[in-house]
Nucleic acid binder design. Sequence first.
DNA 1: ACCTGTGGCTAAAGCGCTATAGTAACTCGT
DNA 2: ACGAGTTACTATAGCGCTTTAGCCACAGGT
Lengths: 381, 381
Amino acid sequence: MAAEQRTPPRGSGRGQRVTIADIARRAGVTSAAVSLAVNGRPGVSDATRERILEIARELRWEPSPAARALAGAPVLTVGMVLARPAEILGAEAFFGAFVAGLQEVLSREDYSLQMKIVETPEAEIETFRRWFSQRRVDGVVVVDLRLDDARIPALEELGLPALVVGGPGHHGSLPSVYVDDAHATRLLVDHLAELGHTRIARVAGDDVFLHTHQRDRTFAARCEELGLECLNQPAGFGASGAEVATAELLSREEPPSALLFDSDEMALAGCHVLEQAGLAVPADVAVASYEDSPLARGHRPPITAIGRSATEYGRVAADRLLEVIAARRERRETGGAGEPETRALIPELIVRGSTAPQLDGATGPSEEGPERPATRSSRTA
Amino acid sequence: MAAEQRTPPRGSGRGQRVTIADIARRAGVTSAAVSLAVNGRPGVSDATRERILEIARELRWEPSPAARALAGAPVLTVGMVLARPAEILGAEAFFGAFVAGLQEVLSREDYSLQMKIVETPEAEIETFRRWFSQRRVDGVVVVDLRLDDARIPALEELGLPALVVGGPGHHGSLPSVYVDDAHATRLLVDHLAELGHTRIARVAGDDVFLHTHQRDRTFAARCEELGLECLNQPAGFGASGAEVATAELLSREEPPSALLFDSDEMALAGCHVLEQAGLAVPADVAVASYEDSPLARGHRPPITAIGRSATEYGRVAADRLLEVIAARRERRETGGAGEPETRALIPELIVRGSTAPQLDGATGPSEEGPERPATRSSRTA
DNA sequence: ACCTGTGGCTAAAGCGCTATAGTAACTCGT
DNA sequence: ACGAGTTACTATAGCGCTTTAGCCACAGGT
């Protein structure tokens, strides 16, 4: 019983931390054996391992992340940095939902998400650099992909595991997930064409982003394939840009009969302009959005949109990133290179009142409750 | 030059990490001296300190958070756990904006935010416990305050610095920030009363939350003071609850002429019910919300709401929490107790079309762009 | 001259864990 | 019966930092 003299503290929260040394003492082995046991590594007999695990459980031992990190183990954290004004998280529904999806799977895997908001893309790279050199994260997710994004080569050089959100195509050696914007564009254009629209305009978002370009291109291409007249109207950022662009489009000699907006926020802004101009949606002008959200659902008429389920998007991104991190760790042991894999989410079209066939438009025929989307919104390919 | 043989690697990212030992060697002192110098502690002369800092800068040294944490220094991370479905982050605009505010000041102070989504309040406490025993966070922010919230005593027992978001009143020994819901209620009720409404109903949110109770009480009290008839209609959670509750209110013999909703999401749901019932807002029924958001601004008519600026709320919360953490560290050195301080945000009323005096209601008279609130929305008291 | 400070630093002991070299005991094959 | 090969551990050296005790030189007071 003399060995019990220094029994580790239990129960009440304030006690000393219990360490592997405590477990080792109780189990009559060294801390090294405990480490092997709790990490599922070979080197201890099954019997001993079981005994050690039992004691660990009993003592309510929790590994110290700091100690692990210091000794070279993964830190169970992934990072994401946003080079945008903080408000974006609240203003653009996409981000909140995306982060929710990330959190969901990360939490489940005992990972945590570290976020940082910075001013410029350069600061973003600097943050990656610091996170890496401080070993603060095991990997990062890269959002708001730009053309010739400087972050890609920077991350490759650092050798920090990263998952690119956006596409399509390969980003250097980095794996990615993306929503197939070409497909989304076709869905939208085809839908409007079927309704009989022949002059379709697109109010495009900020063209520093890669997905904007992708949409630009496929929009023009699809319109041409279908023999439609297409107008691509760059609108810069946010609601005010969309208002100006919409007004601009309406002032044309032959204004379009259908408007395609790059985001829900922009679509609403556009609707307000239409309203003020005395034009009814969808009777006079049809409206559709690349981005679904409660905003789009809640508007009257509810807005036809691409349901890419930002939450699902976040989940998939997190899944992929964890795979990449795991693979990296494997690889360090084996040595294979591994191809950067790209995974696409297939967008679906959710038809709502804003593109209803010409009825009356007051409350569209495909009216629905704000919580129930018309179709499953996305799926992994 | 022999001493230079082991010169620390610079430039290209892949090199070995530079540690205080490297700096010490270059400066001709021990690592202890470097530690003192970089942490601004007494024990080195100003000249030496300057020299050490210079070298650190030159070598681009970054402290290792893991090593620091292991040695007992703060980990520069604060935690927040949400016992809600992940979707809430996207669905309720408040959260996105609140987190944005938190991030903003935390990032600036070089802190990071760790978030976790769990199923139950018990799991939340368990998470706090683990974060504490793993020394993963320096402090936490507690949201979604409930009646007799079990997290308060749990955190007090742990001795983990915490900041409670919600109030009013003290929560054990924990400091808090809150939005003055009593004041908000008076603003709303008074506003509706001034417009001539005498039968006001409130569609109340989930009553496990403390702020719901606070609103319940002050709503009843203020109505009585003004001699108004008040109806308090509990509606449970989210949009569907609000729909049911609104329908219920409309089916009364003498339906209310003004509706007060606990959130933007609920207000919109309520508006849809009104619309379907053929009632115009604000001509037939006035609508106001306790919660502002792009949703409320984007609706037609735009909805009168309490602007508590969730982002600002987040900023204040982060500020306070950092103060608490700093104070805690001081106190460990001195020994004072320190009063739990409470800070209130004064809400302001943003009048919009949904409570316009009886004109036509199609587009309210206090119409505004979606980005420009009518008044500054909140302020620290 | 002698003790007492005191500023400025060093030496060294951790923090809790992982990783690796080493060892003791226990098979085998021949 | 002997070296080789396993298996199951132990001992120990870090990881990069903080912190405390201790040391030395030099200042001042008496």
